[in-house]
């Protein structure tokens, strides 16, 4: 029973990371109805930026803040330069551009930082607390997740800019008629997704270690989480993240072992897509044929 509880708790901790990644995916999906296959590599790249700063002697939290800000700017730049020209292109072209972006980020990171695994510091102590059920890092991750969620909720719900972003995603023509610069709202969405992804990368790097391929599995679980919760529903995606985190841990401990983690994600993704394509809380899935 204690072991079970421990599995659930640490599942919730990794689930927090999946929730953040899912949130980043949902943000871009809501604005553009596209799934960003390069989201994981963007987060990986951001984490390397943080590593560079910390390695150069910058204290953790200033480096964290700078990384989030830098990622925000990079996300906007990527949307403006790479994504904008194919905005109205067929899905296949957009997917190919996303994959191109994924490959470029992955190889540039490998080029600059090599493929050797690096350790990444956690801002939280590593010892176990609460009777050994959960590590301080895991608890810290959960707190950061909740912080990100609350910030995003407040931003989208209560600020004029957040409202404008929601409006632009929903009805671009009407948005232009009230004076919203829709193109910039999309870019802003990319910036936010990149910033949020950076947080996920920095939270997960102390656990999985830093290397150019570190986000592949996490992105896959992020997909599963977003789909499970409903890919157009931010709150659902977060819930999906925690559920998927716990499922992953329980499946790893009691069913298939850790060697098939990615297969569990594959089964989850295909299962949700086939059985309940709008997710648990999503509106009816809109597909661009």
């Amino acid at each position: 029973m204690e072991a079970f509880l421990h599995q659930v708790l640490s599942g919730l901790a990794t689930g927090g990371i999946y929730a953040i990644v899912a949130l980043a995916l949902v943000m871009i999906y809501q604005a553009t109805h596209l799934v960003n296959f390069a989201q994981g590599e963007m987060a990986m790249f951001s984490t390397y930026l943080a590593w560079t700063m910390i390695d150069a002697g910058v204290p953790y939290w200033p480096a964290f803040a700078a990384t989030v800000a830098l990622s925000f700017v990079l996300g906007i730049a990527i949307e403006r330069i790479v994504i904008r020209p194919v905005e109205k292109a067929p899905v296949l072209a957009v997917v190919i551009v996303f994959i191109g972006l994924l490959v470029i980020l992955n190889s540039v990171a490998g080029w600059i930082y090599t493929y050797t695994i690096k350790s990444f510091p956690s801002p939280f102590p590593t010892h176990r607390i609460l009777g050994g059920y959960v590590s301080a890092h895991e608890l810290g991750v959960m707190a950061v997740t909740m912080g990100v969620l609350v910030l995003l909720f407040v931003f989208f719900r209560f600020t004029p800019l957040g409202l404008a972003m929601r409006a632009a995603a929903q009805n671009p023509v009407s948005s232009r008629l009230v004076g919203i610069r829709v193109g910039w709202m999309l870019a802003l969405g990319w910036g936010l997704a990149a910033a949020v992804g950076a947080v996920a990368g920095m939270m997960v790097a102390p656990i999985v270690f830093l290397d150019p391929n570190m986000m592949a599995g996490i992105l896959l679980y992020g997909f599963a989480a977003a789909l499970l919760g409903g890919i157009d529903n931010p709150a659902g995606a977060v819930f999906g993240g925690f559920v998927v985190g716990v499922l992953e841990n329980l499946a790893g401990a009691y069913l298939v072992g850790t060697e098939l983690k990615l297969t569990v994600a594959l089964v989850l993704i295909v299962g949700v897509l086939v059985m309940r394509p709008s997710g648990l809380f999503g509106r009816v899935l809109v597909t661009r044929v």
């Binding site: 596209l34 899905v91 599995g217 594959l266 897509l273």
Partner: peptide
């Protein structure tokens, strides 16, 4: 069959990773 465009891409992406 039930997965249009993007979702098929997603499912096959997962297949490739797994």
């Amino acid at each position: 069959l039930r997965l249009e465009g993007l979702y098929l891409a997603l499912a096959t992406f997962a297949l490739a990773l797994a």
